[in-house]
């Protein structure tokens, strides 16, 4: 299977990654190089093999459903590139 420019543009959109027009060709080539290489897995017989979900056998742990981290708004906002009145600032999303 080979990716074309339109598919790469679609994936980039899904990944919220802007790819400049002049970089598209190079990206298509590089991604196809990697994909062609990983295609070799098609030759492996995986009939009846369970997909791995956990590399070390362990039970899923549960804890009490209680707040364990204090709600320190200033600490949470300290790294925000834009903040106002104790909130994160984003571009307008609702008209």
């Amino acid at each position: 299977m080979s990716l074309d420019k339109a598919t790469v543009a679609r994936i980039a959109r899904l990944a919220r990654l802007r790819i400049e027009a002049q970089d598209q060709e190079r990206m298509v080539g590089e991604l196809n190089g990697i994909l062609t290489w990983i295609e070799q897995l098609r030759a492996v017989d995986v009939e009846g093999v369970e997909p791995m979900t956990s590399v070390v056998a362990m039970d899923l742990v549960l804890r009490e459903d209680v707040v364990t981290i204090p709600g320190d708004r200033d600490a949470v906002l300290a790294n925000a590139p834009a903040k106002e009145h104790g909130f994160f600032v984003v571009p307008k999303v609702v008209e």
């Binding site: 098609r42 997909p51 791995m52």
Partner: peptide, 15 residues
């Protein structure tokens, strides 16, 4: 299925 799930199956075989 063709990529991710298959890779997770091969991972089981490797382990």
């Amino acid at each position: 299925d063709a990529y991710y799930l298959r890779a997770q199956r091969v991972r089981t075989l490797i382990a």
